[in-house]
């Protein structure tokens, strides 16, 4: 099982930017403990949701050929709590991309209200880490991730596998 922290994409501009949506619900069990009597989405999971939005954007820009791993949180600032019943919108854009890595920035919004600003660095690990070997299959972009993009971009990773 993979924890997926975005429900769907609203917009996807290949190599440029992406907008994703997440509905927060009390059915997410961790909210019962975080915190009892005051359920709120943990900030670390908002970072993960942004990493998924931006990571898919980075991966798609190289046809999912790279294993894209979150390598650095450059900035994470939070301005409001996110609670069950909220819909948050994640805006991510690519600032720089090179064969070895990519840098992204983004905001999380609830309506007109800015919830967070999150800037990240991703490593293309096959081109990094001094030539260390990783499994050949792309363990980052699995079917669950690819399904999020259905209707936005041609599902390149899956179509190549089935050819």
């Amino acid at each position: 099982m993979r924890w997926i922290w975005i429900d769907k994409f609203l917009e996807f501009k290949s190599g440029e930017s992406a907008v994703a949506l997440k509905n927060v619900t009390l059915a997410e069990e961790h909210l019962h403990d975080h915190f009892p009597g005051f359920p709120m989405m943990p900030e670390c999971l908002m970072i993960e949701a942004m990493a998924q939005t931006a990571g898919i954007l980075v991966g798609e820009s190289r046809n999912f050929e790279e294993k894209v791993i979150l390598a650095k949180i450059k900035k994470a600032a939070f301005y409001h709590f996110v609670c069950p019943g909220d819909t948050i919108i994640l805006h991510a854009r690519i600032d720089s991309i090179a064969p070895e890595a990519a840098s992204t920035s983004g905001e999380i919004m609830r309506g007109d209200e800015r919830i967070a600003q999150i800037s990240l660095m991703f490593s293309h690990i096959d081109n990094n880490l001094a030539g260390k070997q990783f499994p050949e299959e792309n363990f980052v972009f699995t079917d669950m991730f690819n399904s999020l993009l259905t209707g936005f971009v041609e599902n390149k990773a899956t179509s190549e596998q089935t050819e």
């Binding site: 390598a71 650095k72 450059k74 600032d95 720089s96 090179a98 070895e100 890595a101 840098s103 660095m121 490593s123 990094n128 880490l129």
Partner: peptide, 22 residues
């Protein structure tokens, strides 16, 4: 650390409007 070098390169490129091959 190693990923910081890439971060520094990206930022230098933006600040000085130059291309910096790693």
């Amino acid at each position: 650390e190693s990923i910081d070098f890439l971060d520094i390169i990206f930022r230098l490129e933006k600040s000085f409007d130059i291309k910096v091959p790693r």
